[in-house]
Structure formats: C-alpha cells, structure tokens
C-alpha cells in the first residue's frame, strides 16, 4: 500500500476539497425529537411480516413457493435422512458434498450406500466438488420477509459448497427463522462480534437468470434446485 500512498492522499484530498461546500438534503427522512434526520425507522417502511412465529413461517413458506425453493418440514433427523435418501434415488446421485456440523454430522452415517460423501475440508479438490450431484449444508438464519437462507463461510462449509453443486440442500431449525434483514444483521453481529466470517450470503431461491428475453431460467450456474429441510425448534 505504501507505493500508493500519494494517490491515496490525493484522492482523499480531492474528496475533502469537494465536500467543503455542503449539498442540500432533498428527501429528508423522518426527524428525531432532537431535529436530526434519523434512518433508524426504515425497518417499519419495509414489507410487514407479522409478530408471531406462525405468521413469520407462513410468509417464509409463501415466498419459498414463489421463489421455487422447495421447503419441507421434518419432524426429526430420521425424516431428514429419509428425505435426502429419496432425493438421491430420484436424482440418481453418486456423490454428495457436505461439511461437518451439529445437524449434518449425524446424517453422514445414514446416507444410502450407493451415495458417497465428499466431506469438504481445507484443500479440497475443486474438480471433485464440481462433479458432485448435491451439496448439503447448514445455515445461520432463515429470513421471513424475503424468503432467504443466510449462510456464511463458517456455517455452510466455506464459500462455494452452497453454490457449486446443482442441488443445494439446507438443514435448519425453525428457531433459526428471523423476521427481517434488520434482525438477521443484528443476530449475525451478536453471533460473530468482530470476527465475521469472510463471506455472508443471503440466498433467495435457486440460481436464476432472465438474461434471455427476460424469461426465467433456473440453474444459470449453481443450484438448479434449492431444498430447505426444516426441523422443529
């Protein structure tokens, strides 16, 4: 960075010079009691979610459907296991990539014998991961307001396990469902404090594109399918 010190100072200098004259604020947000513009209220302008856990879940389910996220409620881990087995048979999967974790580890032993697991660890082979039929991950949160699954490089087996295989399966608990993005960010801040993972990603439906005549096509690059298996709190 030292070689660039001069340009850094020059740019910051131009910024400070430019900002000597104040620009008017044309669309002031609500003002606080002290007269200062405040943006703390924007949360209430966004789409409403509903206060109860049932309302939250209903919205998440509704959005999942329109996003083509396949949401399934599972009573226990045995049901999760059975569901994955069913998907593997239907899709004739040979390999599934996954990471270790509270919800995933118990599933590894239960995988059908014809399905070999690729346990993602440091220094994995990119080609091997690319060839996998599915990726199985946990997540940090689910967001009701947007129908999103929030993963991080810490919670979901790194940066690409949740986006390279053609079918992404997320195992989560209903208690991970938060109201909106504001609550999601607050929850991440509490969880990680100053040690955020290097990636936080809100996944909203399977990979999609509308670049050809604005016609929706799923699976432009990564997951053609996104399945969320939801366990009780």
């Amino acid at each position: 960075m030292n070689q660039n010190r001069g340009d850094r100072e020059a740019i910051l200098g131009r910024v400070r010079e430019a900002l000597r004259e104040e620009a008017p604020l044309k669309h002031p947000a609500e003002r606080s009691a002290g007269g200062e513009p405040t943006t703390a209220h924007f949360r209430e302008w966004l789409p409403p979610v509903g206060a109860s856990i049932d309302e939250r879940f209903a919205l998440f389910a509704k959005l999942s459907e329109s996003l083509r996220t396949e949401l399934h409620l599972c009573a226990d881990m045995a049901e999760v296991s059975a569901f994955i087995k069913k998907l593997a048979e239907e899709g004739n999967w040979k390999t599934i990539a996954l990471h270790t974790g509270e919800l995933i580890s118990p599933l590894i032993l239960e995988l059908p014998p014809q399905l070999s697991p690729l346990l993602l660890q440091s220094g994995y082979d990119k080609d091997e991961l690319e060839a996998c039929d599915a990726g199985l991950t946990e997540c940090d949160l689910l967001v009701a307001q947007t129908g999103s699954v929030c993963v991080t490089s810490k919670s979901a087996g790194g940066r690409v396990l949740s986006v390279l295989p053609p079918h992404h399966i997320v195992v989560a608990r209903k208690s991970q469902l938060v109201t909106d993005l504001t609550e999601a960010y607050a929850s991440l801040a509490t969880k990680y404090r100053d040690a955020y993972p290097s990636m936080i990603s809100f996944i909203t439906g399977p990979s999609r594109t509308g670049d050809i005549e604005r016609i929706l096509v799923l699976g432009a690059h990564g997951p053609k399918r996104l399945t969320v298996l939801l366990l009780p709190s």
Binding site: P47, S122, S148, S153, G158, R159, S201, T204
Partner: peptide
C-alpha cells in the same frame, strides 16, 4: 427487477480467514 430480494446478496470482508476451508 421487481424482486423482493435478488438471488444472492453476499458480503465479503477480507480473504479467507483462519479456520475457513476455502476462499
């Protein structure tokens, strides 16, 4: 685009951090 949220919204804070498996 008229979506509630775009497909992937990702925040990146640095290269691969200690303990992470890729990046």
């Amino acid at each position: 685009t008229g979506q509630h949220l775009t497909g992937y919204n990702s925040m990146y804070g640095g290269p691969r951090q200690p303990g992470e498996i890729d990046g």
